[in-house]
Design a protein around this nucleic acid. Sequence first.
DNA 1: ACAAGAGACCTTAGTGAAAT
DNA 2: ATTTCACTAAGGTCTCTTGT
Length: 333
Amino acid sequence: VLELNVKNEIEITDGLIEFTGEESNYNPFDEQISGFEETQNMKNENEDFNDLSSSSLNAFEFGQRISEESFNLDSQFKSNKKGTFKNGVIKESEVRLYKCPACDFETNLKKHLGLHMYKHSNVKLFRCSDCTYESNDKGCLKKHMLTHSDVKLFTCSECDYGCNKKRSLVKHILNHRNIKLLKCFQCDFSTNDKFCLKSHMLTHSDVKLFKCNDCEYKCNKKSNLVRHKVRLHSIVKLFKCYKCEFECNNSRSLRIHTLSHDNMEVYHCSRCKYLCNRKEQLERHMVSHSEKYLKCSQCEYMSNKKELLKKHVLRHRSDGVRKNNASEITPEK
DNA sequence: ACAAGAGACCTTAGTGAAAT
DNA sequence: ATTTCACTAAGGTCTCTTGT
């Protein structure tokens, strides 16, 4: 039993993860993702996880499931109907009398229709006093207000982690236990985050969703494109030459530029904009333009840098894949 | 549930400079 | 002249959090 703060507890016993203290039993892993598979045998692959029995994850559950989840109902309607479903059937007496003229929503309670109609207007009933957030749902505003406070409804008993969502704590605790329930069917990658898996699947695709307007760079993540633009094409120049008007956004470019002010003999690369003040540095630089690569004898890895190949070979050793020695570093022509 | 962003971690490549 | 160390830039990937 992992004790959470105040009245919340999470039990992990025989494969059952269950919250006690509150009634909600949300299972973030209820849904199957097409093309992906849950690693139900993951437990067997993880010898460090001693708390569960070997067959436990096949019965991985978060207590009793909420039957309402399976109905496609408006959230306000659904929230007030709790307890009116029995075995997934709505009682015959609860005929829906009020229909929304603007959409398919219908309810048997007039006040629910009134609340629903706010959805079709610009009127917002509740507004955050600290930011621009507004909503027609009081509960949503209450939840939003937590983001302005330091209050953490759920805290981990094993570390300093705290959050306001049960689901987040469940995921966090699964990380402590080294359990990954969602697995990529194309590689060894696994995670507990469905969206993360979706994003991971893009790495197996040749499609690049985002392209830089200023160069040939392409990637599948918007945040990577933004980072690329800031690093390479940022209009903000942080480094300025103290002798002239030259500006750039990295220290290396500035260093190279200052060579021109020092009356030093400057060596230019014929294939790029590289400059330096020593002949041997230029020669080493030219290696980066050559097609001479050093190849690892144990895998497909290649590098034109001896230090990197050494590091790589050491990794083979530490992984215990195969014993190796320096003679296995085979330069290619 | 989904989407997006921030940030962390890891890796590779390139480089300056010191050591050999 | 060559090797090695230390550092930085940059990209890929993943985790975590937040908002809708």
